[in-house]
Nucleic acid binder design. Structure first.
Lengths: 143, 143
DNA sequence: ATGCCAATTCAAGCTGACTTGAGGTCAAGC
DNA sequence: GCTTGACCTCAAGTCAGCTTGAATTGGCAT
């Protein structure tokens, strides 16, 4: 796979150069040299970046993601960790679903005080019940 | 509903007093007076805290929660906004569901390299494609 | 050989949601 | 009336994940 300099990586991946440098510093990706001042990355860095984005989307921290890569950049994913995360996501999904239903109900319910509406209270309980553990951040809030 | 001082609220809700003060400063909850130095809150603050927790669980920021609910816990903003939020949550839920399925697959898949597994790649694409919108944070990382 | 321009380094700053610490105050118990 | 202890205020610190700014460097075109 062809080598790409940092600007090309930034353009193709949509990840800002500053973030690429930051990720390199953190050990999430590795450059294979320089072209003048410019970092040069191996072509597969693009897939790594996709993986990183997906991991972030699933709620992994950068540190956790870093732990998933072997030193050579090959994914070395702990399967137990993956299913643990899947379980976490399941809990999150249930919670979000309850919240969504709560919001829909609140939007439709004519009761003057939602906290007194039994349906809303039931939904609240459900939403508050399971404790999630990690953010599922997405949309890098790129403006 | 009976008034509670800050310590009682903290004990019953599990929310630290420092956080209660912080929430009050932010306008998310309101005290109704003092008993000596101590803030006194109306009894329904407990339900408001539940609502706040649920909102945080669903990925709303404190500011958003403040905007969605009047200080008394009544949904304040127009119903259109509430259903818009519900729609947002729906998108997030679909995304997380795809991600969860991806993780489960990765945990089970015997392929030596996930990046070479077609299913995993498809899931990666899906995860990278749809952009979630918000974090779903919970478990206040209370140690 | 001389500039230009973009990339580099390093430190500092930013946002969100709190927590922590220093120093002050108040009601209550002895 | 004095000590005690919990709460008070206000400022500063923390953590993650980046971004921004200042000063520097190096390839490329003239």
């Amino acid at each position: 796979m062809k080598a790409l300099d940092i600007t090309e990586v930034a353009q193709r991946s949509g990840v800002p150069a500053s973030t690429l440098r930051f990720y390199e510093e953190k050990g999430l990706i590795a450059s294979i040299g320089r072209r003048g001042l410019r970092r040069v990355f191996p072509g597969h860095v693009l897939e790594q970046l996709t993986l990183i984005a997906a991991g972030r989307a699933a709620g992994f921290s950068l540190d956790e993601i870093a732990r998933m890569f072997a030193p050579d950049g090959q994914p070395d994913i702990d399967r137990g960790m993956l299913s643990a995360k899947a379980d976490e996501l399941d809990a999150t999904i249930r919670q979000l679903t309850a919240m969504r239903d709560g919001l829909r109900h609140a939007a439709a319910c004519p009761a003057p005080r939602h906290l007194e509406c039994p349906t809303f209270r039931r939904i609240l309980r459900a939403a508050a019940a399971g404790r999630l553990s990690r953010p599922a951040r997405l949309t890098p809030v790129r403006k």
